[in-house]
Design a protein around this nucleic acid. Structure first.
Lengths: 200, 200
DNA sequence: CGCTACACCAACCAACTAGTTGGATGTCAA
DNA sequence: TTGACATCCAACTAGTTGGTTGGTGTAGCG
């Protein structure tokens, strides 16, 4: 009945496929990724992809889910120190450019603003972030967390634009990180609309 | 010698192709776009694309160049009112989601941080923005303009994430616009590092 | 009128792709 | 040994795609 023991090396194969797929998808996106190339990168037969994941799209979902799980495991909630949150999150994205690209490919591929099934985990995570910022969170709180996330993500999303604006100085990732954090800190110090004052 | 009079309707054909390509590229990206579909959308023979633009990639370049020219023509420099700049720019992106998607596809397709040939116009434009913010602009000034741009772009880049954070309230684009502007205003009011105070 | 440039149309090609299939080999557990 | 599963391998299919070509129609210019 139960099948506990993975017979040959199924978990290793699976992990190799996920790692290879992460690189391939980050490079070329869902449509541009080549199944044969993923198999080759993983040193695994192409047919195994279908055995494990069904099809290319489901493989992509598995890849991005894994990557996001890692992020949430490593980054603390914004809580009462949003500037620190922005600094840590920016650093994480700078260290994981593949994740940033995966998120962009996903955003472009799955059109529409509708929530896809299986996104409940993300909704839950984002809600937790918002909740950590205020005891009685409003839409304005959520917008603030959203923009803080943008501050952290944006530099890694558009490295070419950073280069255009900054030239050689674009290479100084630490400076960008500190700048984003300072930007967030300054903004928060003032109290955004709807946060604490002028509650209606 | 000169050939002033466009014999049949070459400018109209060209314009139709550009408009159709804008939609197709925004929807599917460079790799995902289908040349036949662009021709069909434009009501023009596929062969005309190659006559006018050479190949798919050059067509994409023409599309994005045109779109960016329109933006720069309509949006004033940040100058001394960055919050207003963010508000106006956010509104522009909200009104032109295709442009946002084109920029994302481009960022993903042309890897690396190297500047591509033909980007001089963009470098010039960004330099003007930075220069308008300070009489003696530094790298910190450039980083600030860059992050302000991010504040305006991000909500349109990740509408699904906005939905996750905001739920139904994600539809209120005006609120997001105002929030981003207020965020920028609050941040600027405090003086970012390297801007005016503590100059070393 | 002839020349040129543009547009239309349809067929064509060579290359490539996601996904399938069938069989051979090896490995664990009963 | 037998059965169940995982892997590898190679060939196959059925459909798609960017780009080309050749031939026809037509509008303006000199």
């Amino acid at each position: 009945m139960a099948r506990m023991p993975p017979k040959v090396s199924t978990t290793a194969t699976r992990a190799a496929l996920l790692a290879a797929a992460r690189g391939e998808f980050a490079d070329y996106g869902i449509a541009g990724a080549r199944v044969d190339r993923i198999a080759e990168r993983a040193g695994v037969n192409k047919e195994r992809i279908y055995g494990h994941f069904g099809n290319k799209e489901k493989l992509f979902d598995a890849v991005i889910t894994e990557a996001l799980d890692d992020l949430t495991a490593q980054i603390a909630l914004p809580g009462s120190d949003p500037a620190d949150y922005v600094a840590k999150l920016t650093a994480y994205y700078q260290a994981h450019p593949e994740l940033v690209r995966l998120l962009m490919w996903e955003a472009l591929s799955y059109r529409g603003q509708q929530l896809l099934p299986g996104q409940e985990a993300r909704v839950e995570r984002c809600a937790r972030k918002t909740a950590s910022m205020s005891e009685r969170p409003t839409a304005a709180t959520a917008r603030t967390v959203f923009l803080l996330t943008g501050l952290a993500l944006f530099p890694s999303m558009m490295p070419q634009l950073a280069r255009i604006f900054l030239g050689e100085a674009a290479g100084d990732q630490e400076a960008m990180r500190e700048h984003a954090a300072a930007f967030a800190a300054a903004a928060m110090r003032d109290g955004l609309p709807g946060e604490s004052p002028s509650g209606g």
